[in-house]
Design a binder for these strands. Structure first.
Lengths: 137, 137
DNA sequence: AAAATAGTCCACAAAGTTGGTGGGATAATC
DNA sequence: GATTATCCCACCAACTTTGTGGACTATTTT
């Protein structure tokens, strides 16, 4: 399951997608509009900035905004960034690979199943972007 | 990600699948062959028994064994039982549904995406069984 | 230059989850 | 009744999650 942090991140990103190209948005505005604890949100947005997803401006007229077009930012990227691995096992993760203890990957049936699950999930997550977070008009 | 507990459960079930129809298997045997901490395994197997997956016998000649044919037990069932929800959000879970706070499901883009991810994952997990855990002969 | 605005950074803490252990009770067999 | 093996409960250390508090820095306005 996605952590609360991840859910907050998506709420914030959805809001910033809505306001794309309309200048910086205040943390406090996102916090109140999307009902996300302000200080927690602060951490999350900072993390997204450090990862290159967001840009920020200080002082009056400042705030956060998307660095790229929402349609260019994959949902998979955000999940990996904020939530961690998408795969259900370390030994089938593309970005967080870790070999299993005592599990021969070439003869482990679970391994094969989890690769299929991973690829099925990625089929969706790699092809959806922040633009898909908005309800259709 | 699957918890260690879930990974242990699958290791144990793989072993019991191998030994299907060969009588009860000792916890201690599973523990040593699959390198799973004995006492932890005890809890896991008991849980699987209470859920109707395993059967057990006490005393000499006792142990655990699968209650049904491995090919009849879906991987999805085990994941839900030991690991919890398969979906990435409570509001798209079939077996663990919980409404999101402040998220209108009819207009939440993330909701739609996560339904697709869920269905993609279930497409695999609901169609694989314990029999698929064994390496092909 | 001072004041106001708004993000940055660090440290901490309560609560919950995970992974695991210890010891005794219960049931079946020899 | 001794042995074997599961059942059951209670507890625990470590880690993660979900936050909060407070000071600092950069930018703009007055």
């Amino acid at each position: 399951m996605l952590s609360k942090k991840s859910q907050y991140a998506f709420k914030a990103l959805a809001y910033l997608t809505e306001k794309f190209n309309q200048g910086p948005v205040l943390i406090s505005e996102i916090s109140s509009k999307k009902k996300v604890p302000l200080k927690f949100l602060e951490n999350i947005l900072l993390e997204l900035k450090k990862a290159g997803i967001l840009e920020s401006k200080k002082g009056k007229g400042g705030g956060y905004y998307l660095r790229k077009d929402p349609a260019q930012i994959k949902v998979a990227t955000i999940v990996r960034l904020v939530n961690g691995p998408i795969a259900m096992l370390p030994c089938v993760s593309l970005y967080f690979y870790k070999r299993c203890d005592n599990c021969d990957e070439t003869s482990c049936g679970l391994h094969d199943i989890m690769i299929q699950v991973r690829d099925a999930s990625l089929g969706v997550l790699e092809n959806k972007t922040l633009a898909d977070l908005l309800p259709m008009k």
